[in-house]
Simulated assay, not measured.
Amino acid sequence: MQRSPVRGFVSALPLLIAVGLVPGSVWAQGVPPSSAGATLFESKCLACHSLEANRIGPMLRGVVGRKVASAAGYEYSDALRRVKGQWDAARLEKWLQDPQSVAAGTRMAFSLPSAAERKAVIQYLASTGATGR
């Protein structure tokens, strides 16, 4: 049985969008990664997080370089409070791919399967700094 070219394109569409090869994708429009990350943050993360305030999840401004489970005023799960160290790009990469692999029992159920999207979001979060922009 021969595979349909349309079916092959449809199954590859998420990857093509992630790398910006589909017209209309953020990177295909020449938007720099931090802007692509901002767009992704708005569409994927804002339901639970904000840069400036704790919501369902903790505020994320300044998360890169911040001690794990340390946003003032946020009630973290026991699982996340047991994690030592800081949020760096490598740890955030693992967290966004599979939060349970970083802190088994954490309340965060969301994951971001696309490596390109994870990278863009992490770059964006790193660009926000600790004090605001």
Rank of each mutant, 00 (worst) to 15 (best):
P58L: 07
V19Y: 15
P58T: 06
V22T: 13
G24I: 08
G65P: 09
L80I: 10
R66D: 14
R91G: 06
S77Y: 07
W27A: 14
G24A: 08
L60W: 02
R82T: 04
L92F: 07
A38C: 10
Y76R: 02
L80M: 15
S34F: 01
A72Y: 08
R81L: 12
G73E: 07
L80D: 05
P32D: 14
R91T: 09
A36H: 07
V26R: 00
V83F: 02
P58E: 04
A53P: 01
G57H: 10
P32F: 04
W27H: 12
C45R: 01
G65V: 08
G20H: 12
G85F: 05
K67G: 05
G37D: 03
P99M: 06
S50R: 11
L92R: 02
E42M: 07
Q97N: 13
K84W: 02
A79I: 10
V63L: 10
D78C: 01
P33Q: 13
A47L: 15
L92Y: 07
L21A: 14
G30T: 10
V26A: 14
R55F: 05
S35I: 06
G57D: 09
Y74R: 04
L92D: 02
A79C: 05
A69F: 00
Q86E: 07
G65W: 09
R66F: 10
A69M: 02
W87N: 00
M59N: 09
D78L: 06
S34K: 12
C45A: 10
S25V: 05
R82D: 09
A38V: 03
P58K: 05
S43H: 12
E52I: 02
A71S: 14
G62D: 13
K67P: 00
V31S: 12
G20S: 11
D98N: 15
A53G: 03
P58M: 05
L80P: 00
G37T: 05
K67L: 08
W87D: 01
Q97K: 14
A90Q: 12
I56K: 14
L92M: 12
A28D: 06
A47I: 13
H49E: 06
V83W: 01
G62W: 09
L40I: 09
L21K: 07
A28W: 10
R91Y: 08
R91F: 06
K94V: 13
V64F: 05
D98S: 13
P23K: 06
V63A: 08
V83E: 01
H49N: 06
A69R: 00
V63S: 03
S77E: 13
R66H: 09
L80E: 12
R61Y: 03
V64N: 01
L80W: 07
C45G: 09
P33R: 13
